[in-house]
Design a protein around this nucleic acid. Structure first.
Lengths: 146, 146
DNA sequence: CTTCATGCAAACCCTTTGCACGTCG
DNA sequence: CGACGTGCAAAGGGTTTGCATGAAG
């Protein structure tokens, strides 16, 4: 997960202006532990100065996605959520309950994927792998209740 | 990919009413080769009798998804599309260009997934794997042009 | 006949756009 | 100063809802 400084460098190196709004949004990103919706993001952003217009927020999200500062994740329930990005090719495992997301580095599926892609004759492929389940601490909480 | 008869049985066995609208929608499903949007579905459905209200269409889609008659696929560009379902656990490889979708049966990733899930301590997991690329015939078409 | 399904139109929600104004570099 | 970014409010577009009507079993 990128630090504030890394995110800032990404924007700066890309030639994007470091406006108060963008810097404020980056600060907000640092405070998220797991995944969050655009609305979560907006709410938290508007607890600080300067307040951020909806349009600006969504334009920033688009920019951050393009630059890899954010990653978009599609939940089983249909919601789109975001997480702060990180370097390299990786996938995610998400807790359905608390929303925690862990990175899975070093994609363990490369070999099998390559076989499938070869067999089907596809090229220029990208793949998306998401695992959703219940994390250990949520499972323990759940057992307490039932 | 389910046949008309199989889809019909699923509804029937589930105790759902076999209304003219639902039967008509199942017939439309048979005519799709690859993926389609809700709007594609509506358009094609309304070329036949009886015509189908938007609400009914979306309620039918929900029902079909629940029953596995349809599967929802999330495209890289953010669009949701549907395909006719098929039996068992499987994944998909999608052509970005023509929308063709092939089933990948016998999930080749089980072993690696199991390792990751164990390592992270998750339970009750589901996973979603989608591969997107250019299929062979679209690649050839593309080479002709460039 | 009773429950489940349909159709219409309006409501909804999140996201995007147009445009005048502001500001980073 | 010029290009890029912002804010507002309104439009957009796909999906969902409320409610009266209709049909399946």
């Amino acid at each position: 997960m990128y630090t504030y400084q890394e995110m800032l460098s990404i924007l700066n190196n890309g030639g994007y202006r470091l406006t108060d709004q963008r810097l404020s949004l980056l600060q907000v990103l640092e405070t998220f532990g797991g995944s969050f919706s655009a609305l979560d993001f907006e709410k938290k952003a508007n607890e600080m100065e300067p307040s951020i217009g909806r349009a600006t927020l969504f334009r920033a999200i688009d920019l951050f996605l393009e630059q890899g500062i954010l990653e978009k994740i599609h939940r089983e329930n249909g919601d789109d959520v975001y997480i702060v990005g990180s370097k390299g090719h990786h996938h995610h495992i998400i807790c359905r309950d608390c929303g925690e997301i862990r990175d899975i580095d070093a994609c363990p599926f490369e070999k099998e994927l390559e076989e499938v892609i070869q067999r089907e004759g596809f090229s220029s492929t990208i793949h998306r792998i998401e695992i959703e389940g219940i994390c250990e601490s949520c499972r323990k909480k759940g057992e307490g209740k039932n």
